[in-house]
Amino acid sequence: MAAQGFRPVYHPAGHDHALRGAVQDLRTGRWVAMARLLDETTGWPGWTRRTQVLAAVAAGTDVVAAWRAEQPDSIAAAVMHSRVAVERAVRAHRAGHARTRELWQEAWTACREAVERAPADPVPWVGRLALSLLDARQSMEEHRLPPPAPMLPPGPWGLLAEAEKRDPYNREAHHRMLQFVYARRPGPLSEAVNYAQWASSAAPVGSALHALPLYVRVERYRRDRGHERALDLHWVAEDAVRDARRAMDAWFLFCATEEASLLDLNHLAHALYGALKFADAARVFESLGPYWTPQPWAYRTALPDERGPAEEVFLRARARCLTAPESRPGT
């Protein structure tokens, strides 16, 4: 796995081969494979993950609209419609597009209709959580409810509770909530740190939420760019090593690779590498196989918006970990 000439592959489906096939069909304008895949998907975690990936691909097309026109009674099509509408609204917000408010309203309506069509599904509630990011002033009452614990900010806690009622410890729901916390107040990340620790501390063994603090640490690193002297110490600090070890011991050792988020795996490999835990990082790199994600590696480069430098950092880290003496069999 550390062979010369290895080049990593980025694919949103990762190890999920069935999802990869549906994505390929979706990119050619066909929806039948997507419909079949979702019909065969069991469990809310897999459903949430697959609909998120499919929506990211479908958002720039009219494939889901064609599916709804062909099968107006399909509940899966209604949920995917809400997914695509949310994805478009969030992208418009990120780009400062003039139609952001219009797309936001369309997405909110689509989520409400999906809740009515699929009352047991967490995804429409996850969609409404994603839309809370657009309400920067927290003007909507559902976006400024009191928190469930001290040291946490007011926010869309009712939406998170609805998603968790349907799928406890839903990974995407908590990541959407973390994004809301980031956007709520620029500056120090104390609220985000508190939120990530609160969410991960309540999660059971095997939950991907144990990786949540790693994302906050990367965000802090990203914001501290320019203070170069402090950056090398960022990953070997006692709390950084502790967060990496907890994610390894409470999540990675129990997760199924084909169901794990590539972003989570990359964040864990990155944290262990930074903490100089090369043997542990090697196990995560091996589980990644041929895949990678540009983040968080891009933030270690001078050009974080370009994929090439990030790939080189990933490759150097991977080679360092896989060739470390303690990573070799029999040592």
Rank of each mutant, 00 (worst) to 15 (best):
D305R: 12
G187Q: 08
Q52V: 12
L233C: 12
G127R: 00
R144C: 12
R217E: 07
G274P: 01
M177F: 07
V53M: 02
R88T: 07
S287I: 00
T42Q: 15
L19R: 09
M248A: 06
T257M: 05
M151C: 13
D243I: 01
L103F: 00
L159E: 12
H175P: 03
P72L: 10
Y215I: 04
L276R: 13
T257P: 01
E312W: 12
T323E: 09
D167K: 01
R242Y: 11
D264Y: 00
L133T: 13
W251H: 11
D73G: 10
G14I: 03
L131G: 11
M1C: 12
T257Y: 02
A66E: 10
E106C: 09
W157P: 06
S327P: 00
L103W: 12
H270K: 08
H93Y: 09
V32P: 05
D264S: 13
M34F: 05
L129A: 03
R128C: 05
G21R: 05
V63T: 09
V115Q: 06
E258I: 01
R91F: 10
W44S: 11
D25Y: 05
Y10Q: 13
D25S: 15
Q52P: 00
W297G: 00
P309E: 02
T51K: 04
L131R: 03
E238Q: 11
M177E: 08
R50N: 04
E116H: 07
V32C: 02
L54W: 04
S207W: 11
A118Y: 09
E191G: 06
V241E: 12
V284N: 04
Q71M: 13
T293K: 02
S200W: 00
A149T: 13
W67D: 03
E70K: 13
R217H: 08
V236I: 15
P148A: 08
L214Q: 02
G274E: 03
Q52D: 14
L209I: 03
A65W: 04
M1E: 15
A59K: 15
V126L: 06
H210L: 05
F252Y: 12
L288Y: 02
W251F: 14
A208V: 07
